[in-house]
């Protein structure tokens, strides 16, 4: 089988139930389950890690670490506490953020931010050029928050900044940054659960 790297995503968008069963099967030692779990989630994992790290080589390394961890820790997944996707993306995000914070000292990072123009950091010929991705993404969850909240959440979650770094970056008091992050995330939870309820009913 030949498969080029440029082949478009095949987002096998498995339902939460399917992912949960796959992850539980991995935990149970089912050898068939892991590749299926990988195929159903890797575009999400890689996409998130790539967004945080903005470096393909490092993102591939982190993605590999994440899946080894998923495999080894699968028995620690507790479906009563959340979805399989949340469990996996939590690992992915932590590792990506650890990598960001390890690779750059705080001051390096601040300098990087001053000079950062989001698109410049990316190879514009790559299929992951930010334009399309960010445009699609902006229509998503974050677009439903106030600009200030969505900005704070984006800096924290997608750029991997701590809340102190968010405050510094936006030149606002730490308390204000904390409030924006908290209110933004709580609002998002409300919005998403309302959407979910609507879908369920509709």
């Amino acid at each position: 089988m030949t498969m080029s790297e440029d082949e478009p995503a095949s987002p096998a968008t498995a339902s939460p139930d399917v992912l949960r069963e796959l992850l539980l099967a991995v935990a149970g030692g089912d050898a068939e389950a892991f590749p299926r779990l990988y195929d159903s989630t890797s575009a999400r994992v890689f996409g998130l890690v790539l967004r945080v790290l903005r470096d393909r080589a490092q993102s591939e390394e982190v993605t590999q670490e994440v899946y080894l961890e998923v495999f080894r820790q699968a028995s620690g997944f507790d479906p009563s506490r959340g979805s399989a996707l949340a469990w996996i993306l939590t690992m992915a995000h932590r590792r990506a953020v650890d990598r960001v914070r390890a690779s750059q000292s705080q001051s390096d990072r601040d300098v990087a931010y001053e000079s950062r123009s989001t698109v410049e950091l990316f190879d514009p010929t790559s299929e992951t050029a930010l334009d399309g991705i960010e445009a699609r993404h902006v229509r998503g969850a974050l677009s439903q928050l106030s600009d200030r909240q969505s900005e704070a959440i984006r800096l924290a979650y997608l750029d991997g900044l701590t809340q102190s770094q968010v405050a510094k970056h936006l030149d606002i008091p730490l308390g204000t940054a904390k409030t924006r992050i908290r209110d933004g995330l709580l609002a998002l939870r409300r919005i998403m659960s309302a959407e979910y309820t609507r879908k369920e009913e509709g």
Partner: peptide, 27 residues
């Protein structure tokens, strides 16, 4: 736990298929 669940939505739309070679390495 419930806020972790909410963070899942933050990366929706960022999907990017990793290279096939990475899949091979991981498996």
């Amino acid at each position: 736990d419930s806020l972790r669940e909410t963070t899942v939505d933050l990366s929706q739309g960022l999907e990017s298929t990793p290279p096939a070679a990475l899949r091979d390495r991981i498996l």
